[in-house]
């Protein structure tokens, strides 16, 4: 089993091949990244990423996808532990910068100290003073 940490949460998946790479079936890819395999490529909402011509480096004959290679191919970042059992997937600089440029405050969900989840957007309609602090 591999653990994949993403902005959406922590996911478990059974890799189809050993590292390097995080080889997943299309169902796990969709569950973890939101990208579904379609005839036109890998699609999330209106966005479709065509599978490159020739031998796609991140798709094998059995139809498994190297999710990490795919994730990086579309401009994101992915790192892993030595064994390839834990992966962290994040948005790339381009996506983060684009999001900021709109001046729409990026939404997020975090727990309070009682474990109750709050979304920034729960406070829409108020002026939000979003402030950071730490004990260290």
């Amino acid at each position: 089993m591999a653990v994949v940490l993403t902005d959406q949460g922590e996911f478990e998946a059974a890799p189809r091949r050993s590292p390097p790479g995080l080889w997943l079936n299309t169902r796990d890819l969709a569950r973890i990244t939101g990208f579904e395999a379609k005839p036109e490529g890998f699609c999330k909402g209106d966005i479709c990423v065509p599978v490159p011509h020739g031998v796609a480096r991140y798709v094998d004959e059995a139809g498994n996808i190297d999710a990490a290679a795919f994730w990086r191919h579309i401009g994101n970042v992915a790192v892993r532990d030595k064994a390839g059992e834990v992966w962290a997937f994040g948005a790339g600089a381009g996506e983060r910068a684009q999001a900021l440029e709109t001046l729409e405050a990026p939404d997020f969900e975090l727990p309070d100290f009682d474990g109750r989840l709050h979304r920034l957007s729960d406070y829409r309609g108020q002026k939000v003073f979003l402030s950071s602090w730490a004990s260290w």
Binding site: L100, E104, A105, P111, S121, R124, F129, S132
Partner: peptide, 28 residues
């Protein structure tokens, strides 16, 4: 809220504490 992974820092470009972002009623 507790942000053990510093997600908000990654989203907003925060690099220290205390820092703040002012967000208006429309989420801007």
């Amino acid at each position: 809220l507790v942000d053990r992974d510093h997600r908000v820092a990654a989203l907003y470009g925060m690099v220290n504490v205390p820092e703040a972002v002012w967000i208006d009623e429309n989420g801007r």
